[in-house]
Design a protein around this nucleic acid. Sequence first.
DNA 1: TCGCTACATGTAGCGTTACTACGTATTGGA
DNA 2: TCCAATACGTAGTAACGCTACATGTAGCGA
Lengths: 112, 112
Amino acid sequence: MRAEALKGHLDGLLLATLEDGPQHGYAVKEALCDATGGKLDLPTGTVYPALHRLERAGLIKGSWSVVGGRRRRTYELTEQGRRSLAGARDHWQEFAAVISAALGGGPWPATN
Amino acid sequence: MRAEALKGHLDGLLLATLEDGPQHGYAVKEALCDATGGKLDLPTGTVYPALHRLERAGLIKGSWSVVGGRRRRTYELTEQGRRSLAGARDHWQEFAAVISAALGGGPWPATN
DNA sequence: TCGCTACATGTAGCGTTACTACGTATTGGA
DNA sequence: TCCAATACGTAGTAACGCTACATGTAGCGA
């Protein structure tokens, strides 16, 4: 699955991945891949810039560490990031309902 | 609702609007607005270029006419457009399921 | 020891696409 | 007469995920 259609939704996915505890960038990518059964295998050139963007926006907070000789940048949600994640979920619900309604052709539960 | 998050999904919506019969551009925009309870009120600067794009791609076919002194460009689905619409619906179902799974936090019926 | 793979991070430049802002023109109502 | 709605269009901008590349370590097999 191409992530091109993700435009505007990727941030929420990354935040959701960090919800259960701090992760470093590579682990976030892997977790996202696992959570979707390998259907969302994002290139690192997508993940890292997105994480930088989230950090600049104050939604996540990163810190360097070294594990097994490899440097890692571990990210965790900020309070603002947690609120943003809740907003992203609401937004997604509405977005999905709207698109499903307009796209039609399939029985999608538009009720919410 | 901003259409920014639409990236990659708008084409399918436009095709779906034309599925029940030919429409001119402005009517497509209005129909999309109605179908979503006013939540998807696209600017004309989004709709017209998108229709041109779809026509160039051979998914819709346009023809000029004059109604009530106003010129209209009426579009209808091509056979290729019909197939593309079916593909867009499939793609949306999978996309929505994947995002819902990864975003979590809400009971979304991933079964379909 | 050499080379490969996985891990781990990063940047530069590109392409797509929806957006804003504007321009043109007709009809019809205030 | 002015303005809103209808109806079409383009130019330029911005966002953002992508490709491609660069860097470096750890661990394994040949």
